[in-house]
């Protein structure tokens, strides 16, 4: 996992829960990294350990914690230096979702060790569609749901995300149904 994700976890914790909480979480996770470099590759276990430590330290359920991370990461990324790139992908949630497969392809070029998941978006009607999330990793579905809700908030159209099929239930991959209201 690239430092990009671990930075988001750190930034969320320090922003919402304080530096002391982050310090304790790092301690619990047994991590001594001072600063996560954006495009540096770190073991996936480090991310999982940080998530688990956050759950234990803050007493927040894992599902809620992962979605919080995802949403924060999306909003933080969108509001930061990458905001211009995200808006270049489109000015609506739908256009972003349509461009998502390409976006991740580009990310794979830049982060060769990313082992990035694959996304496919299938519009199924007005203001709705299915997002196919294909990945060799486990346990990050709620993180993706958080990212989607965060991006939706960035575009000003809060969305509903419902898991239709889950790899954890034996499906081939995760399928998430996303729906959003008309633009105001």
């Amino acid at each position: 996992m690239y430092g990009l994700v671990n930075r988001a976890i750190r930034d969320l914790i320090t922003t919402r829960f304080g530096d002391d909480a982050w310090h304790h979480i790092k301690q619990r996770a047994g991590i001594e990294v001072e600063i996560f470099i954006l495009n540096e590759s770190y073991p996936d276990e480090m991310t999982y350990d940080l998530v688990s430590a956050s759950v234990e330290e803050l007493g927040i359920p894992r599902t809620e914690m992962l979605r919080m991370f995802g949403e924060f990461w999306a909003l933080d990324t969108a509001s930061g230096p990458y905001g211009a790139l995200i808006t270049a992908c489109g000015t609506t949630l739908e256009s972003f979702l349509i461009h998502l497969p390409n976006l991740h392809t580009r990310a794979s070029m830049m982060f060769p060790n990313l082992d990035a998941p694959r996304f496919e978006f299938e519009p199924t009607g007005k203001n709705q569609g299915k997002l196919h999330y294909i990945t060799p990793r486990h346990g990050l579905t709620d993180f993706i749901i958080g990212i989607v809700t965060g991006v939706a908030k960035f575009y000003g159209s809060p969305c509903e995300v419902q898991p239709l099929e889950l790899k954890s239930d034996g499906a081939d991959h995760d399928v998430l149904e996303i729906s959003w209201p008309d633009a105001a």
Binding site: R7, L38, N39, E40, P81, L85, M110
Partner: peptide, 25 residues
């Protein structure tokens, strides 16, 4: 073009991170 821009941006952020790390050290 977009990929290069993203890469430049990423490296700029990484350089900032390294600077922060250096300052922290």
């Amino acid at each position: 073009t977009m990929d290069l821009l993203q890469m430049v941006l990423s490296y700029r952020i990484s350089i900032d991170d390294l600077k922060k790390l250096a300052d922290s050290l």
